[in-house]
């Protein structure tokens, strides 16, 4: 479904990705792990089209997308939930969700129904639809960011550090939801600091270090491999 080949990316003069190659198949949860600064977030941003200076190949659903703008990648069925969540401050919860539908004519026709369905799993959002989104707690904002990305029905969703700064009980709930999303046919590419949790969820995992993939294996296998975890993930 998604194939990245020899992807390079730069922030100004610093060469952050130095030839990342990886693949995500339909219906999988794939997880990227590695230390801070290994290039996990940059990989997601490059796939979404948010990094200006990049080289290599990014193929999604058979189409080369490296030089397409972000909005065109969304149209192909790619969604991205950034680490900072990016809930729009002045807007209500409902308007934030509607924002997830503005670019999808199909979604707009069934707006009320889509919002109903997107919030079915999040009773807390449903109760607060007309509240200004910034009044939500961190965990609720994360749920909103995910619901907003999912509301248009993307084929592949990329999640950057969804568990960061959220109460453990909510994190468990959220990971349960990712499992359901996969079972319902959404493919997930996940970046997560909480390695144990991520490997427990994912089908496969790639280990990044200094801008390259140093290891990849089924998640269960990596979960058992403490030497690798120690070497590339411990802080």
């Amino acid at each position: 479904m998604l194939r990245i080949e020899d992807l390079h990316a730069w922030y100004g003069p610093s060469h952050v990705l130095q030839g990342v190659s990886l693949e995500v198949n339909r219906g999988e949860i794939v997880c990227l792990i590695g230390r801070n600064g290994a290039g996990k977030t940059t990989t997601l941003k490059s796939v979404m089209g948010l990094i200006e200076k990049r080289r290599g190949r990014v193929v999604f659903e058979g189409q080369e997308i490296l030089h397409r703008p972000a909005h065109a990648r969304f149209a192909l069925g790619l969604a991205y939930v950034p680490e900072e969540r990016r809930i729009v401050p002045g807007l209500s919860v409902r308007d934030n969700l509607r924002l997830g539908l503005v670019a999808s004519p199909e979604g707009r026709r069934h707006e009320a129904e889509r919002i109903e369905r997107a919030t079915a799993a999040f009773p807390r959002l449903k109760e607060r639809l007309d509240q200004v989104a910034v009044t939500l707690s961190g965990g609720e904002q994360q749920m909103l960011a995910i619901a907003r990305a999912m509301i248009s029905g993307p084929k592949l969703v990329m999640l950057d550090e969804p568990s960061e700064g959220i109460m453990p009980v909510l994190v468990d709930e959220m990971f349960e939801m990712f499992r359901r999303m996969r079972d319902e046919g959404t493919t997930i590419l996940l970046v997560e600091q909480n390695v144990e949790l991520a490997l427990g969820l994912a089908d496969r995992a790639y280990v990044l270090d200094q801008g390259v993939v140093v290891h990849h294996a089924p998640a269960a296998e990596l979960l058992a491999d403490e030497a690798i975890q120690e070497r590339y993930c411990s802080v």
Binding site: L50, H71, P82, R98, G100, V102
Partner: peptide
């Protein structure tokens, strides 16, 4: 209107509007 929503959101955070499929 839909364009109004895009404008209100885009004034605060153009990047997330792009990520949600809008040609800013």
């Amino acid at each position: 209107t839909r364009y109004g929503l895009i404008i209100r959101a885009g004034a605060r955070d153009p990047q997330i509007v792009r990520v949600l499929g809008v040609d800013v």
